[in-house]
Amino acid sequence: MSEHDHHHHDHDHSELSETELRVRALESILTEKGYVEAAALDAIVQAYETKIGPHNGARVVAKAWTDPAFKKALLEDASKAVGTLGHVSRVGDHLVAIENTPGRHNMVVCTLCSCYPWEMLGLPPVWYKASPYRSRAVKDPRGVLADFGVSLPKETEIRVWDSTAETRFLVLPMRPAGTEGWSEEQLAELVTRDSMIGTGFPKTPGAPS
């Protein structure tokens, strides 16, 4: 299938609708051949739309902020620790949690494709999968952070984790000041997706979201 095949088509429809037609055709072929049940494809999409998302990671982070034994277990073996929580147990075997400290900020990328902890954070955003982030994160992480409006003290060590294998990384951000006595549920509300990738911070208590 080369791009040249398309030159004979009329150009009334956009490249997008061209793609849409090809995707539909492939789905017909796969279902007609008996490879996949069409309803099962619907169910996959629905599962992604409803079951995974950054709320899973946020609950893990909030628990680590309030429960020192859980935090220790999480940093030692994140798959095992998360597996002990009923609500997010389907995390696979190779999750690694990495802790931000005042001296060190962690940031996660996949320069080769788009590896990302789906079970913890959902499907990755477009920018995570796109060339600007993948190319620059390992060479100019401070410049990338500036694109997110994030700046760190110039002496802070920045550790970039390139996800080149099946290990998946979850950043454990620092707990915001002014949250003493907060419940896990309240804290989870402050945990943003980007703070668990390392391209942002948790929300500040009282700040407009």
Partner: peptide, 26 residues
């Protein structure tokens, strides 16, 4: 592409949907 230059700024999208077109989910 790790370390390549010239791809420009990272452009996060506010309230990004899970899929931008239905065919992506298929």
């Amino acid at each position: 592409m790790g370390g390549m230059d010239g791809f420009g700024k990272v452009e996060p999208e506010l309230n990004e949907p899970m899929f931008h077109e239905e065919w992506e989910s298929r």
